[in-house]
Design a binder for these strands. Structure first.
Lengths: 104, 104
DNA sequence: CAAACATATGAATATGTATTCATATGTTAC
DNA sequence: GTAACATATGAATACATATTCATATGTTTG
C-alpha cells in the first residue's frame, strides 16, 4: 500500500465518494440487486421492499457516480451495474469481507 | 456477481459498514496514512493536518471495525492497517478507481 | 507526588443525508 | 386528448455523524 501517498487529491475524493455511496445499506442492496442483470425500478423496489421513490433517489446517486446505468424501454427503466470494474470491485470486497480478518 | 443474492444479512451489514467507514475522507486519509507502517496518533494528525482529537475519534471507529490495530509503546500508540486483507482491499479499490469506468 | 506529554473520550453542535410525501414528467394505449 | 402506469424530483423531516472543545486517562521522568 505504498500507493497511498501517491494518491492524488482527486483520486482520494473519488475513492471516498465511492465508498460513501456503497456505505448505505439500502443503496448497497440496490446495487447488488441489479448486479445480476438489468432490472426495472419497480422490480427492484418490490424485491427489496423499498418505496419506489427511495429506490429512484438512490439510483440517481448511483447513476451520478457511474456505478449503474439505466436504459429506458418503453415505460420502464432498466438499471444494471455500469461495467465490469464495478462488479469486480464488489466481488473483491465481498471476498475480503468473507475472509477472516483476524490473521495477519 | 451472482453471489449478491447469496449475501447473508450479516455479511451485508459488515460490507456496508466497512464501506461507510471508508466513505469519510478524513477517515480514509487516516487509514491510508497508516498503511505504510505503524504511526503514532500525533504523527498521523501532524501529517494530515487534523486535530489530535479528530484522529483519535476516527481511529476508534476504524479499530472497532478491525480495520486498524494499535499498539502502545510507552507514551505513544502506534496504529497500522489491521492485516493484509484490509490493505489488499484498499489496493484493489484504488486500482478500480484508477481504471476507466466508461468501458463495459 | 507533580509535571509534562500522548491519547482517549463525553458533550455539544453543525452539517449531511436517508426517507417519506406529494407531485411532476414521461410513456403507452384507448 | 385522457387515463393508467412507471419513473423522477422537490420539499420537508428526522436522524446520523463529523468536528470541536474541554477534560479525563494513561505514561514517563524528575
Amino acid at each position: 500500500m505504498s500507493q497511498a501517498s501517491a494518491l492524488r487529491p482527486y483520486e482520494l475524493t473519488v475513492l471516498s465518494e465511492t465508498f460513501r455511496l456503497l456505505g448505505d445499506p439500502s443503496r448497497l442492496k440496490i446495487l447488488l440487486c441489479c448486479s445480476d442483470g438489468p432490472k426495472s425500478v419497480s422490480k427492484i423496489a418490490a424485491e427489496l421492499q423499498l418505496s419506489q421513490s427511495l429506490v429512484s433517489h438512490h439510483l440517481r446517486l448511483l447513476r451520478g457516480a457511474r456505478l449503474v446505468r439505466g436504459e429506458r424501454q418503453s415505460k420502464k427503466v432498466f438499471y444494471e451495474i455500469a461495467d465490469k470494474h464495478v462488479s469486480d470491485m464488489l466481488s473483491d470486497m465481498i471476498s475480503h469481507i468473507r475472509e477472516d480478518r483476524s490473521e495477519h
